[in-house]
């Protein structure tokens, strides 16, 4: 056993869901339906990747503006596309919860999944910070204005954390045992 394996085991032991919760989730009608219907998992995976593209495409474009590029594009104009990113996020939240309910142990015991959740949380807090602390500055911005340093930090954190969400999500089957 390598040092990494030992470290992972300790982490899993500390973070694992109660065994009875796992048994409960796997016993729900939803989990039974996902496991026993062959087309559900592949269809949910396809939707999960479409949601990814929609979210990353729209938020990535907004992040590039926050970083200070495309100065002639008003930030508020880009925000008109954000409902599409929210739609992508909702698709991925629903399909992700479907995967988790059907096979909780393969995520619960998977370091990749915890990293994915961590970066989702960072992306979420980062977005909330933007909406709560930078709203008036965003509204006051004129086309051509450079973005203040706070916008650049938030845009950079967003871009990196969504990339990390994709990275750790795709690594689920390789660093752990998820399919």
């Amino acid at each position: 056993m390598t040092q990494l394996d030992a470290w992972l085991d300790a982490l899993f032991a500390a973070t694992t869901l109660d065994e009875s919760t796992i048994v409960f989730l796997k016993g729900t009608a939803l989990a039974q339906w996902v496991v026993s219907t062959p087309w559900v998992w592949p269809t949910a995976e396809a939707l999960h990747f479409l949601g990814l593209a929609l979210l990353v495409g729209v938020i990535g474009l907004l992040d590039v503006r926050l970083l200070g590029f495309m100065k002639s594009v008003p930030v508020a104009a880009l925000k008109a596309l954000v409902p599409w990113a929210v739609a992508g996020f909702v698709i991925n939240l629903v399909t992700g919860m479907l995967f988790f309910t059907a096979a909780p142990d393969q995520y619960m015991h998977n370091l990749s999944w915890w990293f994915k959740v961590l970066f989702l949380a960072i992306a979420g807090v980062n977005m909330l910070l933007f909406e709560t602390t930078q709203r008036s500055r965003m509204r006051a911005m004129q086309p051509g204005d450079d973005t203040p340093p706070a916008f650049k930090v938030i845009g950079g954190v967003s871009l990196v954390s969504w990339l990390m969400v994709v990275y750790w999500g795709r690594m689920l089957p390789f660093l752990g045992d998820a399919f």
Binding site: G57, G60, A80
Partner: peptide, 23 residues
């Protein structure tokens, strides 16, 4: 995939009339 399909989707949506204020 995220870069290609994402950039494409954002542009397509703009052309199709969403976010019309985006030059």
């Amino acid at each position: 995939l995220g870069v290609l399909v994402g950039a494409n989707a954002a542009f397509d949506l703009r052309v199709l009339g969403f976010g019309r204020q985006i030059p």
